[in-house]
């Protein structure tokens, strides 16, 4: 299988602290990959550097066989990445329609409504996004990521604040994307991880602690100690 994303020695230093410390990572095309680890393990910083939001202190990011380390975030997004924020970052004062239209880059009515329909929000297209319930705002954020039709979709804790029934819908949506879209998912909810991920990487203190299938990770004693055992 060919690689979509690769990082080599990716490092981010805040003050003296190595929040992400020399991470070598690969992601194959079409995979759903979950990134887990305790709070402060450097997960968000890592995907921040992949997407270009956060500049890397050291190391390289390769996307589709091209070194993109020097490219600004918006260029990386244009090349086929999409990024959803951990803390909901929608346009609160604009309508859902306008939110998705900005993500699409065009105001095509059918496409916008289609994208909203995938998260079940099409009937609310003209509402102001900020008036939505929190769970719906998360879904809108996901819809904006999906609408970009990215090759790599980075989701930072997408199910946080979603109700059980909404999580079910989310899982279905992500499965329907699999194949065309490669998905890198930061997730705390282990049920979601186990249900979706082809493969899991565990980050701890800025380094990769383990990597494997959900079954491997579940059985891994180090991971139990570092992360799963605590919860």
């Amino acid at each position: 299988m060919s690689l979509l994303l690769e990082t080599k020695g990716l490092t981010r230093i805040y003050g003296g602290l190595r929040a992400v410390d020399g991470v070598d990572y690969t992601l194959a095309k079409g995979e759903i990959h979950a990134l887990i680890g305790p709070n402060g393990a450097g997960k968000s910083t890592f995907v921040g550097m992949v997407s270009g939001r956060i500049p890397a202190s050291e190391g390289e990011v390769w996307f589709e066989g091209q070194n993109i380390t020097a490219l600004p975030a918006h260029t990386r997004i244009r090349q086929g990445m999409a990024y959803t924020f951990q803390i909901t970052a929608i346009y609160a004062r604009l309508s859902l329609f306008d939110n998705v239209a900005l993500a699409l880059g065009r105001q095509d009515r059918t496409d916008v409504l289609g994208a909203l329909d995938r998260v079940g929000l099409a009937d609310r297209a003209m509402q102001t996004a900020g008036d939505l319930a929190y769970g719906h705002q998360r879904l809108l954020e996901i819809a904006m990521g999906v609408a970009q039709a990215p090759r790599l979709l980075i989701l930072d804790e997408p199910t946080q604040g979603l109700a059980e029934s909404e999580i079910e819908g989310f899982n279905t949506l992500i499965r329907s994307l699999a194949g065309d879209t490669t998905i890198l998912l930061i997730e705390h909810n282990m049920q979601v991880v186990m249900a979706l991920a082809d493969e899991i990487t565990v980050l701890d203190a800025g380094k990769i602690l383990a990597r494997g299938t959900p079954q491997d990770i579940h059985a891994n004693a180090d991971v139990q100690n570092a992360y799963l055992g605590t919860g």
Binding site: A73, A89, Q148
Partner: peptide, 9 residues
């Protein structure tokens, strides 16, 4: 939201 806009490409 400038940051969001940048992260939409």
């Amino acid at each position: 939201n400038e940051e969001r806009t940048r992260m939409l490409g």
